[in-house]
Computed example of a mutant assay.
Amino acid sequence: MMFRNALEPWHLVLVIIVGVVVFGSKRLPDAARALGKSARILKSEMKAMKEEEQQPTATAQAGQGQPPAQHTLQNLPGDAK
Rank of each mutant, 00 (worst) to 15 (best):
A31I: 15
A60F: 01
E51N: 09
A39N: 10
R33S: 13
P29T: 10
L73W: 10
P56D: 15
Q61M: 02
V21K: 10
S25D: 04
V13T: 14
S44A: 14
G65V: 01
E53G: 01
K43T: 09
V13K: 15
G24K: 04
V18W: 08
R27I: 10
G63H: 07
A80V: 11
F23M: 12
V22L: 08
K81Y: 11
V18A: 09
F23V: 14
V22W: 08
N75A: 14
D79N: 09
N5D: 11
F3I: 03
D30E: 15
A32M: 15
F23A: 13
F3W: 01
R4W: 02
L7W: 08
Q74D: 13
L73R: 15
G78Y: 07
E45D: 15
Q54W: 00
E8D: 05
G78V: 03
E52N: 10
L73C: 05
A48M: 02
F23E: 13
K43F: 02
F23N: 11
T57C: 00
P67M: 06
P56C: 07
L7Q: 11
P68Q: 08
K81V: 10
R40D: 14
G19K: 14
E53H: 00
R40E: 15
H71V: 06
A34F: 07
L42I: 04
V18Q: 09
G36R: 15
V21R: 13
K43M: 04
S25Y: 12
Q54Y: 00
L12T: 07
A69G: 04
H71K: 14
V15Y: 14
Q70D: 09
M1K: 03
S25L: 08
L7I: 12
A62K: 08
G78M: 05
P29C: 11
A48P: 00
L73D: 15
M2S: 07
E51V: 02
M46P: 00
K50Q: 09
A69F: 01
P67Q: 13
